Amino acid sequence: MRYRRRDILSTNRNWLPTVLMALALLTACSAEKEPMIIDKVRIGLALQPSSALVLVAAEKGYFSQSGLDAEVLEYPSGKRALIEGLLPGNVDIAVSTEVPIAEAALQGTKMKLVASTFTASNVNRVIARKDAGIEKPEDIAGKRVATQKHSAVHYFLHLFLLEHGLAESDIRLSFTKAEELPASLEWGTIDAFSMREPYISEAAVRLPNNHVIFAAPGAYKQFDIVVVSPELQKQRSRVIEKFLRALQMAEEYIEQHPKEAQIIVAYKFGVVPETVAAGWGDYQFQLGMGQPLLLLLEDIARWMRSDEQAIPNFLEMMAFEGLEKTKPQGITVFR
């Protein structure tokens, strides 16, 4: 039997709410069944406490919850994650300190900075052998001092020396890989080195009664920065947004469960949680992109550049789209 529209309306005038409710339920069910798109990504992880956001995100499953099939590749430092991981194309995302980024920018390398993940002003240390005649910072003059070239610990050493009336020309400076420094100090091939954890503690264990450690709180406020290739930023921006969402979940976890986060970091480095907790109060694990970071990048480039090199335009290197979708309040750069 064929019904004209007026016949249906006359039969039941209350049909419209019921139909609309049924359509809404069908739409909701369809949305629930729609599978999440999973994107593969390779992440360059620096093995240092400042990488806590990435470590926690990986341990707690936040990458997979955000729709990422994440492969995490480990590097001894942020510089190595950038130079050996991101720039040759071995990883898609790396987290590095500002100094290697400034160096790469001075060399004309194209990359995008999408967020900072960490800031602190009391991370790095200088550890020295007592039997080399070093009891106070000024005693380093004339001594054999090593560090990792053009990295955060190198810049810290530069500022540390200035604070004590010295320059790099006043020491016998050499450069080596971060993981080789503790053994070099133990064997006596160097008298001191500038580095951060876990290498400072490793060296102290190797020389239990023959070392002195110097800090310089406030001398250098450093950042860890998420770096991606321009291609990823243009062609796979969804991956960056998912990555930052996972780090945002990790940020909330660290804020709410600091002791559990310290255990995660300590387990990764094979140290007791008390070692990680000792410096935890100096760290800020927060997503953002601030004006102080921009100014610091420019200062580091001035320290590092040769006379003919121009200061890179770091503002143009910053890509804000991911943060604008995940944590817009974290952006304080003047644009």
Rank of each mutant, 00 (worst) to 15 (best):
residue 191 D to W: 06
residue 158 H to D: 10
residue 135 E to C: 00
residue 151 S to W: 07
residue 196 R to M: 09
residue 161 L to A: 08
residue 116 S to Q: 12
residue 116 S to I: 02
residue 130 K to P: 03
residue 138 E to Y: 05
residue 157 L to Y: 10
residue 195 M to G: 07
residue 152 A to C: 10
residue 163 E to P: 00
residue 152 A to Q: 12
residue 167 A to E: 14
residue 159 L to A: 03
residue 128 A to S: 15
residue 146 A to M: 03
residue 150 H to L: 08
residue 156 F to K: 01
residue 155 Y to M: 10
residue 196 R to K: 04
residue 124 N to P: 00
residue 160 F to R: 01
residue 158 H to V: 14
residue 150 H to T: 11
residue 126 V to L: 13
residue 117 T to G: 03
residue 125 R to A: 11
residue 190 I to P: 02
residue 135 E to L: 14
residue 121 S to H: 12
residue 145 V to Q: 05
residue 173 L to D: 03
residue 173 L to A: 14
residue 194 S to C: 07
residue 171 I to V: 15
residue 172 R to K: 15
residue 119 T to C: 00
residue 116 S to A: 02
residue 130 K to I: 15
residue 117 T to L: 06
residue 191 D to S: 13
residue 127 I to K: 01
residue 199 Y to S: 04
residue 143 K to E: 08
residue 188 G to P: 04
residue 154 H to V: 01
residue 138 E to Q: 15
residue 123 V to Y: 05
residue 157 L to I: 09
residue 168 E to C: 04
residue 169 S to P: 02
residue 173 L to I: 15
residue 138 E to A: 15
residue 183 A to G: 02
residue 189 T to V: 13
residue 193 F to A: 03
residue 164 H to V: 08
residue 136 K to E: 13
residue 175 F to L: 08
residue 168 E to Q: 14
residue 124 N to I: 03
residue 142 G to L: 09
residue 153 V to D: 08
residue 136 K to S: 14
residue 172 R to A: 13
residue 127 I to R: 02
residue 191 D to E: 14
residue 137 P to N: 07
residue 174 S to I: 06
residue 179 E to K: 06
residue 157 L to F: 14
residue 137 P to L: 06
residue 198 P to R: 02
residue 132 A to Y: 04
residue 198 P to I: 04
residue 118 F to L: 11
residue 161 L to R: 01
residue 138 E to D: 09
residue 127 I to Q: 04
residue 142 G to P: 04
residue 153 V to G: 00
residue 117 T to V: 11
residue 116 S to V: 05
residue 128 A to I: 14
residue 182 P to M: 07
residue 122 N to S: 14
residue 180 E to M: 12
residue 128 A to N: 13
residue 133 G to C: 14
residue 184 S to N: 09
residue 114 V to S: 07
residue 151 S to E: 13
residue 174 S to Q: 11
residue 145 V to H: 06
residue 133 G to W: 09
residue 177 K to N: 12
residue 130 K to C: 07
residue 175 F to G: 00
residue 149 K to R: 12
residue 131 D to E: 10
residue 129 R to E: 11
residue 149 K to I: 08
residue 115 A to E: 02
residue 156 F to T: 02
residue 170 D to Q: 02
